[in-house]
């Protein structure tokens, strides 16, 4: 299916808007804290030590 160039602009904007809403919902949901907690201590699985 070919998407017209003109419509692509709107799809881009719509997807971006949805993405921003998802980020906001995720923050409210407390997911940001999970990410921060995981990322601020050395991940043993990442470095293959677990």
């Amino acid at each position: 299916m070919k998407i017209k160039e003109k419509n692509k602009k709107w799809i881009t904007v719509a997807v971006l808007a949805v993405a921003v809403c998802m980020i906001a919902a995720g923050i409210v949901n407390g997911e940001a804290n999970v990410v921060l907690t995981k990322a601020t201590s050395i991940c043993m699985q990442c470095i293959g030590l677990d």
Partner: peptide
């Protein structure tokens, strides 16, 4: 939602 949102 947070990470999927950021990746998207």
């Amino acid at each position: 939602l947070y990470v999927f949102g950021m990746i998207s």
